[in-house]
């Protein structure tokens, strides 16, 4: 079963594997959010999810988070 970003709990570290929307993917890539593990900082109920990487925080709307596929990062990062 593929996991999506919307299922992530705050505090978890995940890698964004597949971002279907071209523009959103390019924007995340540019900011380094596809380079490796990112931390899930907050998840609002049925609302946006906040990710963090090297001190940069990004908020993604719920619909978007539901279509981004993730994998759990190994603990070595």
């Amino acid at each position: 079963m593929t996991e999506v970003l919307a299922d992530t709990a705050p505090g978890e570290s995940v890698s964004l594997e597949r971002v279907p929307d071209d523009d959103v993917r390019a924007r995340l890539l540019r900011l380094g959010f596809l380079d490796g593990a990112v931390e899930c900082r907050h998840r609002l109920r049925k609302g946006p999810i906040v990710l963090r990487r090297n001190g940069t925080e990004m908020a993604l709307g719920a619909d978007l988070a539901a279509e981004i596929e993730i994998s759990h990062a190994r603990a070595d990062r």
């Binding site: 929307d21 959103v24 924007r27 900011l31 946006p48 906040v50 001190g55 940069t56 925080e57 990004m58 908020a59 993604l60 709307g61 619909d63 978007l64």
Partner: peptide, 9 residues
Amino acid sequence: TPLVTELPR
């Protein structure tokens, strides 16, 4: 358009 926004410090 979905929300995609950076949260500045």
